[in-house]
Amino acid sequence: MKSSLIDQVGVEERVARFNTRSIKKQSKVEGLKIAISMIDLTTLEGKDTEGKVRQLCYKAQHLHVDMPGVPTAAAVCVYPTFVKLAKKELGNSGVKVASVATAFPSGQSTLAVKIADTKFAVESGADEVDMVISRGEFLSGNYNFVFDEISEIKAACGPARLKVILETGELATLDNVRRASEIAMRAGADFIKTSTGKIQPAATQPVTLVMLEAIRDYYYETGIMIGMKPAGGISTAKVALQYLVMVRETLGNAWLNNHWFRFGASSLANDILMQLAKESSGVYQGGDYFSKD
């Protein structure tokens, strides 16, 4: 498969230019509200408990009770075993349940296990499935393997939307990020996602830009919109706005909503809330006034 080439220095220069955009006043408030509505609140730890998931679900629906008009988070992202619980907690709030699957985070298992993992999540009520690609196979050049695996998982997803995690921190180059993006989109991804959050670096702006450009080129070619989810490492309102600028100037406004763009982040919400509170009150905020779940 022919894949577009990427020049790293050029990508970084472009990112630097996005970051010179100055987002102030009303456009800052609007942008922050859009950003907060795009957050997938996430807990993906070995020590996760029902109590933790319940708290997260509550938080997703009530990000900050003191502030009227704050949207809910886009989704709660959990392991398959907590999907049923999360679904119940979120009810008809509109907040989606996303579940990681396919032997997350390493992806080191058989296809049969991955399909079973996926089906279990979907049958438990997951609206969205976040799968990982087999990075070892990708780096070995077995692109067909990666493609076929994604197709199989997509088939197992049924109505659930499939997010394909490239784990860009393991892909080494931007050329690989681009190639993996194209494989994922052509194999049936509804979303492409940077990272599991378990590998450093997680989402970066250059990686995200390369993926956004892959999405744009796929759209040029097919007319099909694909969603984008940078995950991990985005923790401040300022950086979130820089990501929105990238989306706006690469894909345009059709992508500037939580159907097509998500942030995989946990601590981002509070920083955005603090910024929103500052914009409305004029006073800089402290962490103790915002709930940590």
């Binding site: 020049d7 921190g169 080494a172 180059t173």
Partner: peptide, 13 residues
Amino acid sequence: HPIESIGVGGAKY
């Protein structure tokens, strides 16, 4: 000509 900076001491993706 640009110099890529991926790798030891440089940017990582």
